[in-house]
Design a binder for these strands. Structure first.
Lengths: 117, 117
DNA sequence: TTATTATATTTCCAGTTACTGATATGATGA
DNA sequence: TCATCATATCAGTAACTGGAAATATAATAA
């Protein structure tokens, strides 16, 4: 093996972090939260995701440390956990802005279509 | 639906970009390339991946625009396509450094173990 | 040409993921 | 308490993903 155990552990965390942003539904949620905190219901409306699906992805994002949760009465509000999360999105925006359109048609894996019905 | 078609398209590209970094093997490759260009054989040695596996992931990373390829005689050298790719890794490093260890044990999805044999 | 080395591609499959629908929990108010 | 609203969790399932092994391509050299 070429990598130490601790390095592998760090890699695993980093992969999870990026994986949090690697799904259309989760990315849509994070993008919506870029403008400020929102309750679950508002996230559902803004993204068009089903309630259970949004809740699942929010749990995922929360477990991964990308968003934080705040109970407000019977509502739950979510917000980005750190400015660097928005920083990641901004860097990605910049990269994509400079890339030619067709350059990103990666066929090695698919980005699942959202069933936002 | 809540998002326009063009927005969805941009989201899809961004999701693919992050997906490129969301796998242990691909992330290992990108990390190794952080120090400079490497040939495929060197990448195989440095990461411990099998040749075909590394080649597949390199094709994936290339399709996604994260790395660039350069033919050198009968070798092929790969390097990060943009400083912002390293920027993404750096931001992730910072985020993870500040987070408590257990905070990143997301159970919603698994990061596949690498078969680096 | 033929042999050799370096890299890429294809095929198949086990394991994982995200979605829906139903149900459960939790919080507020009557 | 009970009813209602907001959110979370729990199966079940279709689809996708990454890995290995075998094969193909490409480049150099003899």
């Amino acid at each position: 093996m070429a990598l130490s155990a601790t390095t592998t552990q760090a890699l695993r965390h980093k992969a999870k972090l990026f994986n949090g942003l690697a799904d259309l539904s989760r990315l849509a949620i994070v993008e919506v939260l870029r403008d400020g905190p929102l309750r679950v219901g508002e996230i559902v409306t803004a993204t068009g995701l089903s309630q259970s699906n949004a809740s699942n992805h929010l749990a995922c994002l929360h477990d991964c440390g990308l968003v934080e949760r705040e109970q407000q009465g019977r509502y739950v509000s979510y917000h980005l956990s750190d400015d660097r999360v928005a920083g990641l999105l901004g860097l990605a925006d910049g990269l994509l802005a400079d890339a030619a359109e067709g350059f990103y048609d990666c066929t090695r894996y698919a980005v699942r279509e959202r069933n936002d019905a």
